[in-house]
Structure formats: structure tokens, C-alpha cells
Design a protein around this nucleic acid. Sequence first.
DNA 1: TAATACTGATTGCGTTTTGCAATCGGTTGA
DNA 2: TCAACCGATTGCAAAACGCAATCAGTATTA
Lengths: 173, 173
Amino acid sequence: MSIDRRSGCPINLSLEVFGDRWSLIILRDMIFGGRRHFRELLNGSMEGIASNILADRLKRLMELGMLTKADDPSHKQKAIYSLTEMAITLVPILAHLGAWGRVWLPVSEELSIRAELLEKGGQPMWDKFMDELRHEHLGMPLDTASGPSVRATLQAAYEAVVASKALAASPAA
Amino acid sequence: MSIDRRSGCPINLSLEVFGDRWSLIILRDMIFGGRRHFRELLNGSMEGIASNILADRLKRLMELGMLTKADDPSHKQKAIYSLTEMAITLVPILAHLGAWGRVWLPVSEELSIRAELLEKGGQPMWDKFMDELRHEHLGMPLDTASGPSVRATLQAAYEAVVASKALAASPAA
DNA sequence: TAATACTGATTGCGTTTTGCAATCGGTTGA
DNA sequence: TCAACCGATTGCAAAACGCAATCAGTATTA
């Protein structure tokens, strides 16, 4: 379950960590969707991840040091998953990945608005976002507590696009 | 063999293109190693790709528009693979991936020197590199023909580290 | 001219990983 | 008491993978 070590190349090792079809999807949902529980990740998954795959990937990501797990005080059986610093620093990679996909692949308008804003925001926005994630997942103090959170900003933009598309679909309603 | 389209999310679609253990490795060898032929990719692969997997991925990457294939005039049976613009614009992603891996994973010194230089060079170096790749693979004119090529610079740094490590291993020789 | 090596693949086969559906024992709130 | 929910786990089929052997055509060279 741990890393293969086919070679010591940084790109290869990175691929061995999240070079599959689900690991980055899970991290994306935790980072951008704010999901912390198994069921949130399972039912909220746009791509329809299966529960065994989710369980396997969560375990693997924990072994690799990308996630930690803790008991949720509100529910004895509930576990809460947290991003580690290692996972939080993926934000720039996810931003680039989204930007690349937006240019070259048949993305949907409402799902790409986040990537567009994140790309335009650039490093300052990524830094602010990572700072917020450190606060949320690692309990660190917020350095730059200014204005609405990056996640809220992205989410609001997403919902605005969804609303405007719904309006365009039934303008008389 | 084509894309799944589990969702229109840019990150998901990007993962469907190269979210496996080999596609990015092949592109890495073409971009940083300058490999253009099947055998070069097969035998030069540090991670030891199997020939059927290589054939499959080359075909898939062509279908996705990341590669093109042409006859090599020097050898009637030789095919030469070229990167498309779509693949060339992966350079910043590969740079970030390498930088992240260098920080968090057990990379080897000689294989991470390239990632280090590419990270330090930043966007200007990535632009220069992409310009060189466009020249090499797409026949475009070189906009910024100044100094040694980025690939040569990275390669020289790699070889210097290898040499210094060999010296350290047998100092009296 | 004949032998040898190299070209980009393809095939067969056994192993591993993946995806899906059903299910698990325990917890919670009504 | 009972249905809904919690994080998983299991069985099973399909796909992907890794490896070795092989292919036909081409170039090199003895």
C-alpha cells in the first residue's frame, strides 16, 4: 500500500502518491468542498466514488502522510479527516491542473468558474487559501484574516453561474 | 480508450487524461529527456515501462491530442513522436509536481537537481523551455534564442551531481 | 550475400488492481 | 423500538498490469 519507489525522480514519486483516478479527487473535495467525513466524501462525490475505493484511498493517504483522522466528538462512530501540511501545499498544483484542464478539455461552465477565479487570483489567492486550510485543519491562527474566505468566494461564484444558467434555461419563470 | 467524462470538473478531466502511473512518465521523458522514438522511451525509461503499456499509452495520448506521430526520414520503419501544444503547456504542472515531490518525498539528489533548477528558474525559465519545445516539436521559430537550451542546462546540472557523487564515493581514484 | 541487430509494435498468460453491489456491526435520534 | 446513519468490509467480475516471447520489415556489416 505504501509507495513503490520505482525511481527517486520527484515527478515519479509524486505520481506514485496521487497518480491514480481517485486520490486527487478526494483531496479536491476536501480542499474545495470542505468535506471532512466519510459520508460527505461518498455521497457528495460528483464522480461517484465507491465506498471501498474511498476507504482504501483514505487509508493510503493517511499512510502517506497526506491525511490524519480523529474522532468526531459529536458522534462516537464518526471520524473526521484532516489535511496535513503536505496535502495543503498541493493547492498550487490543483490550481495549475484546473487551469490546464480549462484550456484543453471539455469542462462545464459552472464547474470551471472556480478554476478560473483561482487562476486569476494567482499565488496571493493560493497563499490565502492555504492559510485558511491550515487554520481549518491544523488549528493554526489565521495570518491574513481579511474578507470572505477563498472557499466561500469560489462557492459563491459557482452558485452564481448555476443560477444564471437556470435563469437562461427558463427565462419566463 | 478515450476520456470517461465522469464530470465536467477541470481537475477531474485532467486526471482522466494523465491520472495513471505511466502517461506523465512518458511525457516527462519526452520533455526533459528529449526522447522521440519508441525504443528510446522503452529502454531509456528509468522506471522500466513494459512495451505493451508504452504502445497503449502512446496510442491513447495520440487519441487525446497530446502527441502526434510521423515517419522518420532516416529509417523507413522509424516513427517519430512529437508533443502538441497541449502537452507542451504541461511544463508548469511538471515543474510544480517536481517541486512538491522534492519537498515531501524521498527523492534522490541527482534526480531532483533538475526539479530544483526548474523551480528556481520560475515562469521565465518555463516559458523559455516551452519555446524551445515548440521549436523542436512544432517547427516554430525560436523567440528567445539566448544561451544554452533549458534542457541542456538541466542535463549538465544532473551530470555534475552524478560526477560529484562518483568522486565522493571513490575520492582516491 | 548472409548474418546480425534494430525498428515499432503485438500476443499470450498469469497476477494485481479496480469498480460495483451488497452487507456489516455499531450509533443515533425520533 | 425502529429507521436512518456511521465508517467501513466482503465477494465477485472486469480491467489493467507486468513479463516474456514473438513478429515482419529495415539497416548494418562481415
